[in-house]
Design a protein around this nucleic acid. Structure first.
Lengths: 257, 257
DNA sequence: CGGATTCTTGAAGTCGCTCAACGAACGTGG
DNA sequence: CCACGTTCGTTGAGCGACTTCAAGAATCCG
């Protein structure tokens, strides 16, 4: 089924860039940490938070730095990565607006991975010590914080099984569908978006070589499932991508022109 | 370096099986949820907790069940697994005494994986709603709970990169070293333990076939790095296992007889 | 425009999988 | 205690998916 949604905005992934620095007026408040809070609670959260702008390739934090803050992405994209014994980068995650970064560091007290902006971006800095104070006073914030941590566990568990058990085609199809779903959840076009990562980063993320990623793109394009122009991707045939992502054979009917 | 530690107890992984049902007298209290709590706090936690015995192959919970409780393993071993689209089991984790199970379900409200006892085991059941109440009143419990959730995130992130980037030898070496370290942390022999999982489960966990696991065992044994007799494993050459686990070539000197 | 980077495509190689058969361990009942 | 069936583990041979190596094309950016 061909469904190129062009009516929605492209995935600039920027909330209304208000000059005020408040959660209460942030367009992400229902996706991010403040979900479900009342006005006065939002006000208290506001007091903790500072904003920080980053340019493309800036480090939000580096591996091994002491943990002080959690970060909520306001706009832009980040990648988190670890370095292996040979100093090679291994990409652990891709974060976009509304995502919380740094939760893996609470336990150890230092960031076990680094985070880099994939484009000009902005984050909300949340000092963890102060957040903990607030959590004790605000049941709804506590509940939602636990939900977010739990979701991160579930997400990584899925990713773990995904990398362990799926073949290249499945991984790539699921990667596209995952991006699509995340953009849709943020109100952006589900079927038309820019890849923020290079082929190299994508390959690294999916544990495939850059050549394999390139071949998969060509293959999917030739089958009429996607359209690719540099980093612009349009999903033309969600059904087939879904079938492939589940390890099923392609569905009979391919997308017509 | 040959180091077969035989003086420590084998990994029965059982705390002193006291008849009292209290965290305060549990030998795991410094590994488990109550870490760092005072006597009165321990008492409050005790009130929440009930114990549950399971026999080998019993389900602690099943995939999709509504989330009500977290579980702390008191003794025994569990595996957590998901079922894929074809109903095949994919092992997501191996839990032993002191480990907390079920955290991935807080966010969604239902268990996204199932948990099965690998041998006769016992867990502490912790009703989550009541735990949340307690968390708001006990800062140290809250902090430790967040540490445990965070550690779970970090652990799964590592596992994710591990499955994505490592080859069979590395995976298996790391698997053995990981078990060794976890048993050591619990006061059991680091270099001599029983595998609680079948070859099939191990293969599934490491995303390898049962044949590959078998070949790796034979290979490591022939190189003098381990001794294997059925499910009994003795680590003879930690240094080489470490080298292999990091993707390095074996160190020159193999273990002498 | 020109150099560097990123991406694509082809050919050859390899690691782990599949398929198949055999052997060892377990446990149930005689 | 042994006989027997079943489950679990080992080993070998061939194959396939993805990688590696290599070269060339497109794109970016000063």
């Amino acid at each position: 089924m061909k469904t190129v949604i062009q009516l929605q905005p492209a995935n600039a992934c920027q909330p209304t860039r208000s000059t005020t620095q408040k959660c209460s007026v942030c367009s992400l408040k229902n996706l991010c940490l403040p979900q479900g809070l009342g006005e006065s609670e939002l006000g208290q959260l506001d007091k903790l938070i500072t904003r920080r702008r980053l340019e493309k390739d800036d480090n939000l934090y580096r591996m091994g730095e002491p943990f002080k803050k959690l970060y909520a992405v306001r706009f832009g994209h980040f990648k988190t990565y670890q370095l292996n014994a040979f100093g090679e980068q291994q990409i652990a995650g891709l974060q976009m607006s509304g995502d919380l970064i740094g939760m893996e560091a609470i336990g150890s007290g230092s960031y076990s991975c680094g985070a880099i902006a994939l484009e000009d971006s902005e984050v909300c800095e949340i000092p963890y010590a102060q957040l903990e104070e607030l959590l004790m006073k605000m049941p709804r914030l506590l509940q939602h914080f636990h939900r977010m941590m739990s979701q991160e566990i579930a997400r990584e568990q899925t990713m773990m099984l995904f990398l362990g058990n799926m073949r290249a085609e499945q991984r790539f199809a699921l990667f596209l569908l995952n991006l699509s779903a995340r953009y849709a959840a943020r109100g952006y076009a589900a079927a038309s978006f820019q890849l923020r990562m290079s082929r190299e980063d994508i390959g690294n993320y999916l544990s495939l070589t850059i050549e394999s990623v390139s071949r998969l793109m060509t293959s999917f394009r030739k089958k009429g499932w996607i359209e690719v122009a540099n980093r612009q991707v349009d999903i033309l045939d969600v059904d087939n991508l879904k079938a492939i992502s589940m390890g099923l054979p392609p569905v009979a009917q391919a997308a017509a022109a």
